Amino acid sequence: MRDDVFPRPGVSRRRFGAMLVGGVAAAAVTPAIRPAGAASEDVRIADLDWVDAGRDRRVPARLYWPSPGAPAGPVPLIVFSHGLGQSRTGYSYLGRHWAANGYASLHVQHVGSDGTVWAGNPFEVLDRVNLAADEREAIARAADMSFALDRILGRDSTFAAFIDPARIVAAGHSYGANTTLIVGGARVVREGKTIDRRDMRFKAGIVISAPPFYGERDLHAVLAAVTMPTFHVTATADVIALPGRRSPVQDRLDVYEAVGTSRKALAVFQGGSHSIFTDRALTGGVTLNPQVKQATAEGALAFLDLTFRGDPSPLASWSETWRPLLAVAPTAYPVTGSGRHPSRRDRPRS
């Protein structure tokens, strides 16, 4: 379809180790969570099949758009990057929830690291994973995000006039979390040259289950230049296990600590898994899975209320509501001035 159709205190290794041990008992008890006040998920969806001619690369995307009458003015936009082996159709629970609450959500598919990784000869899957995880693909993914933003905001886009350029957010899970950090300013040095794909149009980042930057010894040097506000989400059983790659939960915390901005918050769910944040329905447990999904979708918007409105109360309320599921509850970073933009709470509902 064409696009004209429709600051948390530091978490030490010792402290987190204690959380993991304590979490085994806590996770065995189903928390009494009251259903959060979810808006009706009556949203519009459009599949966009773009091609970046300059790179001879397809950039498919799926756009979730608020239902007619929901926004009273230009809407904020979240550009979402999927994990290794996923596609534009994944993470639909995030796109639907965000659009139902007044945000447009553009899910970009990265053709060099999408579902084709798992297709073909099973004996060659390690080669395909290595190719997909190569730094050239990592940089190409960041370029996909910027290209998609170019297209959705371009003069030929039907949507451009209805998007607020001051409230554009990068988001992603796993490999997509790395992509989010790259467009947010993460830097690596190769042969004496700094590779920098920072896109200043992104004003905040949602970082879900971020892997380490494999091969980089100084994570602080890589992430020190990330200055946009970031909301980090993980779980105590969030272990990455891929052919040739394994990453413990501590890597998620190390990424959080190394990000240069003080305008950041960390949420750690008790139990869970790395893939609980995908559309898979059973991973992490039949009870915990939908709760973590709902909490993640809501928590991101509560953090963005802090970022764009300077209002810490939604994040505080979210932390209290979901506290039975949390090993670490996020706290709001200090805000100065009002910096207020209209939010989903200011918009009349149809």
Score class of each variant (00 low, 15 high):
Ser12Trp: 06
Arg13His: 14
Val21Ile: 05
Gly22Pro: 10
Ala25Glu: 09
Ala28Gln: 10
Thr30Trp: 13
Pro31Cys: 06
Pro35Lys: 02
Ala38Ser: 12
Ala39Met: 10
Asp47Cys: 00
Val51His: 13
Arg55Asn: 08
Arg58Ser: 04
Arg62Tyr: 00
Trp65Ala: 13
Ala70Lys: 12
Pro71Met: 07
Val79Ile: 00
Ser81Thr: 13
Ser81Trp: 00
Gly83Pro: 05
Leu84Tyr: 08
Gly85Cys: 10
Gly85Tyr: 02
Gln86Tyr: 11
Ala100Ile: 02
Asn101Val: 02
Tyr103Ser: 06
Ala104Ile: 04
Ser105Val: 02
Gly112Tyr: 05
Gly120Thr: 02
Asn130Phe: 03
Glu137Pro: 11
Ala142Phe: 09
Ala142Glu: 03
Met145Tyr: 05
Phe147Ile: 01
Ala148Ser: 00
Asp150His: 04
Ile152Trp: 01
Leu153Cys: 11
Asp156Ala: 03
Ala161Asn: 12
Val169Ser: 06
His173Asn: 05
Tyr175Ile: 07
Gly176Cys: 06
Asn178Met: 13
Thr179Tyr: 10
Val188Asp: 07
Lys193Ala: 15
Ile206Val: 15
Ile208Val: 09
Val222Lys: 02
Thr230Asp: 13
Phe231Leu: 13
Val233Ala: 03
Leu242Pro: 08
Asp254Trp: 13
Tyr256Arg: 02
Ser262Met: 14
Val268His: 00
Phe269Asn: 08
Ser275Tyr: 14
Ile276Leu: 06
Asp279Met: 04
Leu282Asp: 13
Pro290Gln: 03
Val292Thr: 00
Lys293Trp: 04
Ala295Tyr: 03
Thr296Tyr: 05
Glu298Gln: 07
Gly299Phe: 02
Leu301Cys: 04
Ala302Leu: 08
Asp305Met: 03
Leu306Phe: 06
Pro312Gly: 10
Trp318Met: 05
Trp322Glu: 00
Pro324Asp: 09
Tyr333Ala: 09
Thr336Ser: 15
Gly337Ser: 11
Arg340Tyr: 15
